[in-house]
Amino acid sequence: MEWLTNNAIADMRGPVFLLFYAVVIGLTLLACWLARRALDWTGGMQSPTIPREPDPHEIAYLRGGENEVTRSVIFALVQKGLLEVSPQGDDYFVGQVAEQKERRSLSPIERRTLDWFTLPQKTSEVFRSGALASQLKPFCAAYEQRLKSEQLLTTDKMRQQARMIVMAGTLVIVGLGAYKLFIALSRGRFNVGFLIVMCIVGLIPMFLVSRTPRVSRRGREYLERLRLAFERLKYGVQSSPQPQAGGMYAFDPSLLLLVGVFGVGALSGTQYDYFQQSFRQSALSANASTGSSCGSSCGSSYSSSSSDSSSSSSCSSSSGSSCSSGSSCGGGGCGGCGS
C-alpha cells in the first residue's frame, strides 16, 4: 500500500501539482461538457414542419413553460374581451370584464384562467408560488407529453444521465484534490489554501456545464424555424387596426400566435402595447419580491432541476430580417429567445 502515499502525484511539488491539477480540471470540464452535449442527440433529427394550425399556447409552453403559457392564455382572454388589464397607481391589475361574453368556446385552460380572475389580481401575483401559473400546470401536461414525444423537450433520462456525468466529473476534481490534501497534511504541510480554492473554483464551471437545457436541440431548432416563419406577421398586426363598436378590437389569431412564438414583447408597438408593459412590470416586481426571475417576453429554455417545471429567465433579443433585392423589402423583426 506504500504506492498510495509514494508515487509521482503524491511526490509532486506544490506549484507543479497545481499546474497538473488545473490541467486535469480543464480536461474534466471539457469531457463533461462534450458528454453532456452528446446526450442530446436530437440535433441531427429533421425538425418538425410548421403546423398548419399552430397552437400558440403549446409553442409558448415549449419556449418557456407554464409562465409563458399563463401569459399567452391571459392575452387570449384579453383579446376575446373577457379579461381586461387596467393600471392602478404603479401596478397593473387583471380582472374579468364586467359584461361577460360567451364562454362555451373557451378551452379548459382558458376557463380555469378566467375563473382565477374572479377578483382582480395584480399582474405580479399571477406568477407567485401556488398562484395561477402553478395552477395551470396540470393543463400543460398534455403539451409536455406531446413535446417530449416529438423530442422537442429534453427527457428525464437525459437529465439523469447528465447528473451522472456531473457526479463523475465532480468525483475526479474533488477526489484528486482531497487525495493531495491528505498527502500534504500527512506530511505536515499546511500550505493548502491554493489547492482548496482551485478545487472550489473548478467545481463552479462544472455546475454550469452540467445545466441541461429544458428544450432539446431539436426543440431549439424548431423554435428558430417558427420565428423565421412568423416574424413577418408583426408588420401586419402593427398597422393600426380600427377598434370595433365599444372600443374593442377584433380577435386576431396572428397576434396570439406572435405572443406564443415571441412572447408578449412582440406586442410592443401594437394596440396591446400596454399588455406587454404590464407584464414586464410584473416580472420586475416579482423579481424584487420573490427573487425569481421572470421575463416579460420570453422564457428560459434552461432548467437545472430534475423536475420538468421550468423557471423563466428574463431575456430579450432581436434579429433583423434580411432584405430582398426585389421591390418587396421589409425591416427588422423580433427575435425572441429561448434557445
Partner: peptide, 9 residues
C-alpha cells in the same frame, strides 16, 4: 417576404 407568415398559416 411580407407574405411569409401568412403563407405558412
Amino acid at each position: 417576404e411580407p407574405f411569409r407568415g401568412d403563407l405558412f398559416l
